[in-house]
């Protein structure tokens, strides 16, 4: 649905008091009447524009003159930045995770990319207004910690239940909300496209523990850091030691996370610690490094 520029034009025509019709829209952009009609519907339904058909002028106007097209007005420069970004994301490796592709598409849509015009191999998503709306409601509920009443249809049948939404996620090709179910006492995933309807209640909930969200194992895995256990020469204020995340391990010892062993070794050579307990390989590496330096110092080859 890369019709934003048409919507924009239509909006401008309304503001200019020209009472544009679907015919005008079709003629202006050389599209079919049906496509033009769909654009108008989109404006009215998804963008919640207060459109009203004025029979006298055989065209449309806004009931509420103060209506503004939400977030869709942007300068050519902004559009070109988005187009650039969309292309960069879109060209990001053929095995790119779908999250990247979605970003690419979203950016492209805002920039009003025409299909085929340099859109190349950007993935294309049917922007289901209903999904977007449900997603929005859930995001609100998550933020406000509100219980949600769901009407859900799955292969096990239809049911209604109250859940506490915790997180929205995208996995592979579908969108889910992770929600805690009070009487079952566990968190499960609900597909957004299986939600018939939902109602955000006024009840708030507390989540005490994170709970294990199923299917999360499928997420492209993140690299784990190495962890060194060091006894520092002074108590640490805050949660980092020279920028490395650090957790107290008792008795003046800290567990410090790092990814780049060479960089961390360099940090170690600057001192500030009294004892390196683990990992063993790091100790060996540091010892070898020091050994080499000493050899040079002593003039050995």
């Amino acid at each position: 649905m890369s019709n934003m520029h048409r919507i924009h034009w239509f909006d401008q025509r309304i503001r200019g008091g020209h009472y544009p019709s679907s015919r005008d829209l079709a003629l202006q952009f050389e599209i079919s009447r049906r496509q033009a009609q769909r654009d108008i519907e989109y404006l009215a339904v998804s963008l919640r524009a207060p459109l009203v058909y004025i029979a006298k002028h055989r065209g449309y106007g806004y009931e509420d003159k103060t209506y503004m097209l939400p977030h869709l007005y942007m300068t050519e420069e902004e559009k070109s930045v988005l187009k650039f970004l969309a292309r960069k994301y879109g060209e990001y490796s053929t095995d790119a995770p779908s999250g990247v592709q979605r970003v690419a598409h979203l950016l492209g849509r805002f920039a009003g990319e025409e299909e085929g015009e340099g859109a190349g191999r950007l993935p294309y998503f049917d922007a289901d207004p209903r999904l977007i709306h449900i997603s929005g409601q859930l995001a609100f509920a998550i933020e406000q910690r509100r219980t949600v009443h769901l009407h859900y249809r799955s292969e096990n049948g239809e049911f209604r239940e109250d859940v506490c939404p915790v997180r929205l996620l995208s996995r592979y090709n579908a969108d889910y909300v992770a929600a805690y179910q009070e009487h079952e006492g566990k968190t499960r995933l609900y597909r957004l496209d299986a939600i018939e309807s939902l109602h955000v209640t006024n009840r708030m909930f507390e989540i005490n523990e994170a709970g294990d969200v199923p299917f999360v194992k499928g997420r492209p895995p993140a690299i784990q850091p190495f962890t060194a256990r060091l006894r520092l020469d002074r108590e640490l204020q805050g949660e980092a030691w020279h920028g490395y995340p650090a957790r107290p391990a008792g008795d003046g010892f800290y567990d410090i996370d790092f990814y780049d062993d060479d960089a961390f070794l360099q940090q170690l050579t600057l001192g500030g610690w009294l004892n390196l307990v683990s990992p063993k390989w790091l100790k060996t590496k540091l010892r070898n490094r020091c050994g080499q330096i000493l050899k040079c110092l002593d003039g050995e080859e």
Binding site: S154, E155, R171, N173, A174, R191, F215, K217
Partner: peptide
Amino acid sequence: TVELDPIE
């Protein structure tokens, strides 16, 4: 076995 979403 690994748990998968049957819809997927």
